[in-house]
Amino acid sequence: MHPMIRTSRRRRRSDGAARRVFQLAALFTFVITVLIIGTLAVDAWGFLSKLADTPDGLGSLTAIGWFPRRGLYDIGTLVVGTLIVTGIAMLVAVPLGLGAAIFLSEYARPRLRRYVKPLLEILAGIPSVVLGYFAIAVINPDIVVNLFSNASKAFTLMAAGIGVGILTIPIIASVAEDALRAVPHALREASSGLGAKRSQTTFRVIIPGAISGIVAALILGMSRAIGETMVVAIAAGAVGGGLFQLTPLQPGQTMTGAMAALGFGSDQVAGDNLAFESLYFVGLLLFVMTFLLNYLSDRLVTRFREVY
């Protein structure tokens, strides 16, 4: 080989070192993920097999409510609580988030957009603990109780849901806006050129063109809402446990809220009963739910990229 193009040993060594550092980082991330999932699965299995040996057996998974210290692990209570909170959050976040996205992408002047977009990202940066207190200090007494006189005065799933919804708005708005803006300008011109009003262009060309991105935004927002913990831990009530119930106007427990309560130790669960171990079971279930949603959104986003 000609000496000029031969790789020097030093460069080869430094290239190799860099490669190993990145490789290690990637490996580390992967190993941690596997460990987490493995721990969850093993401990969830441990919980279930121990539960099967108790007098009530697996029947405790369907009981009158979620009271882990008393051996009642009605998982339905938590799933329903999560669905109620997520549903209310989406009712708040979808119209506001999509509305903001459409406004920013189709109607706002560039100058306004320059100011509003960062503002939206600030909203995304509000610590959820702040929104939790906002939910019990403002949302429940001033909104929920005012609208529904039969609502619980202190904690309701609805207040928690609205709080989670506010946290979800910026995610939906930001991802959906990117999707809308990715629709080629040529299509806007084509539509306008045919005598379409701006609203017609928006609803008949831009939104259909961006639909997979919009759906991805909704799913991302939804998995955020499902996983949100602090707001529900503070504002949903039912820290120690809760009866199975379907109304959003009462306190309730969500999967994340129950896990937080168990994990905090506020429930003094460490001991020989299974309360602490039920955490892993709930955790695994939550993981599977959000994983499926993320997977779905990933698929949709990939498809969305291929459209143009």
Binding site: L187, A190, G193, A196, Q200, V205, G209
Partner: peptide, 25 residues
Amino acid sequence: GMVFQKPNPFPKSIFDNIAYGPRIS
């Protein structure tokens, strides 16, 4: 009406492309 430099059909069917204008008006 306007025809642009680069063909800019909507990502819709041939039928829906032509029917777009009559529909919106």
